[in-house]
């Protein structure tokens, strides 16, 4: 294939990736609006968002096709994948500790029952001091 044909193939592939990425970002927005619960909304914020961003970056790399900027895009994707679960985890933990999670909407809630069991156990031992963890 000639150079021009490769260019066209790369452009088409890039357009497909950009479309897929934008669609997933749109799905993330819809998800965060529609889901019933704080914890469910966090799912919308991490999974489609991360893959959507990765697809858009692949589309951009296919368009740029050269240069050092492409390596920086790999870094952007890696950073996004490293930091999104951390942010979601901290928000979920804060939600539990401040009572924003409603146990009645969940089918099974083992964290609350484990925390209650730990509290009962702690109250039986009055000389146990210091925070847990």
């Amino acid at each position: 294939m000639t150079q021009d044909q490769w260019t066209i193939v790369a452009d088409v592939a890039s357009a497909v990736c950009l479309l897929g990425g934008a669609f997933l970002a749109f799905a993330a927005g819809v998800g965060v609006l529609r889901f019933p619960d704080l914890l469910a909304r966090m799912h919308a914020g991490t999974k489609p968002q991360t893959l959507g961003l990765a697809l858009v970056l692949i589309g951009l790399a296919l368009r740029l096709r050269s240069g050092g900027a492409v390596w920086a895009l790999v870094l952007v994707a890696v950073f996004q994948m490293l930091t999104a679960p951390v942010a979601a985890h901290m928000v979920g933990r804060a939600g539990y500790r401040t009572g924003k999670v409603r146990s009645d909407l969940l089918v099974v809630d083992e964290l609350t029952s484990d925390q209650e069991r730990a509290q009962v156990r702690d109250q039986g031992r009055p000389d146990d001091d210091g925070p847990r963890d």
Partner: peptide
């Protein structure tokens, strides 16, 4: 797979996901 599953749940009309917390 995960991203498309979550997108399906988000975009399917009138479907409410039931979550759970497991240890």
């Amino acid at each position: 797979k995960a991203s498309f599953e979550v997108s399906l749940i988000a975009l399917r009309p009138r479907y409410v996901p039931h979550g759970a917390v497991i240890g």
